[in-house]
Computed example of a mutant assay.
Amino acid sequence: MTQEIHGTVADGFETVREEFAAVVAGQRPDHEAQVCAYVHGRRVVDLWTGADADSLYGVHSATKGAALLVVALLVQEGTLELDRRVTYYWPEFAAEGKGALTLRDLLAHRAGVVGTDTGFTTAELADDRVVAERLADQRPYWRPGTAFGYHALALGALAGEVVRRATGHTLQEVYEERVRAPHRLDFHLGLPARLDHRFRPVRPMLRTPVQQVARATPPDGPHTLAAIAYNRNAADPTDLASLPNEPAVRARGPASVGGVASARGLAGLYAAAIGELDGRAPLLKPDTVAEFGQLHAVGYDLVLRTHRSYGLGFQATADTWHPFLGAGAVGHSGAGGCQAFADPFSGLAYGYTRRRFAHPDGAAAENQRLVAAVHGAALGR
């Protein structure tokens, strides 16, 4: 039985509903997903299947988008300076040869501290300040600034400590006051207990027998860069899929992976970043969006072992996922399948969430056809 499609699309965006229905038809009967899009601040797509539009899902690394928006705001205001050394804000970070690293290089995944030699407990991963303290003492895994690799569980804590030292407030506090609350976004870095009933626990990825064997015998050992970055070198290795199901992770909202959101919240974040939303001026000026979307790290990612492109923390969405988007599109996908970004050239802001963990490397495959449909409609094709 095919799931019923709920929600609305604006005139001219009917093809998005058709594509979403086709995607849902190819999934299991218990499939839960949401897709939302804005164009120049107007909501043009708001669709879901299973549960309801107010359901909240763990968005894994799409959390980084909210964290990076806070950093961009503070850079725009002059509170942070990209070419200052991290140690100007955080002196302890100089340990083990990291003293020359700039904030710009830290954001571009060039710091070399993707994790620690012994890993973290789940309780530690839930607390950005604990993670930052341990990363400050860690010897980098490559000479800082000379190469790049995805700081999967570390980037939010590193950026967050810089924010805390510069402002006296946690990144999560700045986000709540400056971004989430004013725009009433359903995208939380620290889910209040009163809203926890809306959270839908992540379901594990379905695997064939061959995939199950592959998972039991991973191709990399516990001390590779990938294993360290994803905390598989810990005494109790992290199961990335289930992290949002941990109450402490949801409650604290670690800035790398702990966000909880709906598709409306994901899309709304990027709509607010680049354009007017609910009568409020854009959070970021065009020059700020351009600088954070400018390519800063392109080539072989030492952690992911493949080609990747990053701006200042944000994924280079056009190069990594959707080449038809405008150059300078900023966003971040999340393990489990979610996707979120802003394309300043078309005025498009997009968010997609799903409940079942679909793709450990980021955006689930269905985003290709959904984003193409939304983008085409936004351009009037």
Score class of each variant (00 low, 15 high):
M1G: 09
Q3W: 07
T8Q: 14
V9F: 03
A10T: 09
E14D: 14
A21C: 10
V24Y: 06
G26S: 09
R28H: 10
P29I: 14
D30T: 12
R42S: 11
L47A: 03
A53D: 08
S55M: 03
Y57P: 00
V59K: 05
V70F: 03
V70G: 05
L74V: 07
A94G: 12
A100C: 05
D105V: 04
D105Y: 00
R110D: 10
G112N: 09
T116A: 13
D117W: 03
T122S: 11
D128N: 12
R134K: 15
R143T: 15
Y150N: 14
T170K: 04
Q172Y: 07
V174G: 01
E176T: 08
E176R: 15
R180I: 02
A181M: 04
P192Y: 05
A193V: 12
D196Q: 10
H197R: 12
V202I: 12
R203N: 01
L206D: 14
P209K: 09
V210T: 13
P218S: 00
L225N: 11
I228M: 12
A229E: 11
N233I: 11
A234P: 00
A234E: 05
S242G: 08
E246Y: 12
V249Q: 11
R252H: 13
S256P: 00
G265E: 07
L266H: 04
L269Y: 02
A271C: 03
G275M: 02
L277E: 02
T288L: 00
F292S: 04
Q294S: 13
V298K: 05
Y300H: 15
Y300R: 14
R308P: 00
L312N: 12
T317V: 15
W321Q: 11
A327P: 05
G331I: 01
G336R: 05
C338E: 03
A340P: 06
A342N: 12
L348A: 08
L348R: 07
R354H: 11
R354Y: 01
R356I: 05
R356W: 02
E366Q: 13
N367R: 03
L379G: 02
